[in-house]
């Protein structure tokens, strides 16, 4: 894979690899270097730079952003390497954003059973002078939590909204013999310190979409879905939205109170609580989350955006339904939890 060397105006050398079918801007971002850019389609000219050495090919671009006379000039969003490249950037290193994933301490502020063998865990950032106290994340993202002094590290999605109090709420399903689960069940107490790293993850809402949304959560995959729904409620979203919560048995349907408050905040919210193996008295939907998804699609007049988060089996079944119904892959945002 071609090696790219960026030379900044103040003389820094930054190196990363870039595939031949990838543009330099994207490859730099993948390497944690966020170069000045705006339209990312060869029109605005903000990612203009010069190739000092090497072969490349340019995709389509506007002449205003890069004129024919500008022989050495390139637009990094349109520039794909054909050999190792040395690129001269017209700005200093300080203009390049580096999105470092932050690791910092947080303490357990609350710890309570959430039903069905799950724990509701609230963490709060320990005050830190250079980081501030904001819990910055996009609803749907997760944090890695590590137990100090051990190698135990697990990723959990937030169930709450980003906030300025440094608070992260998780719904964690206790796994038999799971290392982090064992810690939570047996050792953890309020005031204990954990190391957080994040936010991470691409399981986030397309806020701009005007299509109906179908959010499907199973098990602890409900946590990020809850965060997304809370975000929609917070913004008084009016798009048709349907929630499918899949569970094997009724007792696994936790967070009933949260669902009730979402119903009142989002009057258009449809809810299917799908139980695969219910007790005889169950009057709700009987079947898997995927079965409930089929039923939802039959009543929906418009193809929705689909957000699905859950254990592998749930995920595969839902994706299979989406595939059968020809839902375009770009309308499906999925995340697997264990």
């Amino acid at each position: 894979m071609p090696e790219i060397t960026l030379l900044t105006r103040d003389g820094a050398h930054l190196e990363f690899a870039c595939a031949q079918d990838e543009n330099i801007l994207d490859a730099a971002a993948a390497a944690g270097l966020f170069l000045p850019s705006m339209c990312r389609e060869g029109s605005c000219g903000l990612c203009h730079a010069y190739v000092a050495e090497g072969a490349y090919e340019m995709g389509s671009f506007s002449k205003d952003a890069l004129s024919d006379a500008d022989q050495a000039g390139v637009l990094l969003c349109r520039c794909e390497p054909r050999s190792d490249l040395t690129v001269q950037l017209p700005y200093p290193q300080a203009d390049i954003q580096r999105h470092e994933i932050i690791s910092r301490e947080a303490v357990i502020e609350n710890l309570a059973p959430a039903g069905a063998g799950a724990m509701a865990v609230t963490l709060r950032y320990t005050p830190h002078e250079s980081f501030g106290q904001a819990a910055d994340f996009v609803p749907g993202q997760y944090m890695e939590l590590a137990i100090p002094g051990t190698n135990i590290r697990r990723a959990y999605s937030m169930a709450n909204l980003p906030n300025w109090d440094g608070r992260f709420e998780f719904l964690i399903r206790l796994q038999k013999n799971g290392a982090f689960s064992t810690y939570l069940a047996e050792q953890a107490k309020i005031g204990d310190m954990l190391i957080t790293r994040g936010p991470l993850g691409q399981f986030v809402l397309d806020d701009a979409s005007m299509r109906p949304r179908c959010l499907i959560g199973g098990g602890c995959g409900f946590a990020p879905v809850l965060s997304m729904l809370r975000h929609l409620a917070d913004f008084q979203d009016t798009q048709p939205t349907h929630l499918i919560f899949g569970a094997n048995r009724e007792e696994e349907l936790f967070a009933a109170g949260d669902i009730d408050s979402l119903r009142s905040a989002l009057p258009q919210l449809g809810v299917t609580l799908a139980v695969w193996r219910p007790e005889a008295a169950w009057t709700g939907f009987t079947g898997t989350a995927a079965d409930a998804f089929v039923q939802y699609l039959e009543t929906s007049t418009q193809t929705p955006d689909v957000y699905v988060c859950g254990p592998p089996r749930l995920l595969e079944a839902v994706l299979a339904v989406a595939h059968e119904r020809n839902i375009p892959p770009e309308r499906i945002i999925a995340e697997r939890v264990l």
Partner: peptide, 23 residues
């Protein structure tokens, strides 16, 4: 900033240069 090509000017794809989408 509008897109200018040999065949004319104007943002006519799914997203304009400014970030405004089609809808």
């Amino acid at each position: 900033q509008t897109t200018k090509t040999d065949t004319g000017a104007g943002c006519a794809t799914a997203k304009g240069v400014c970030g405004k989408d089609e809808v």
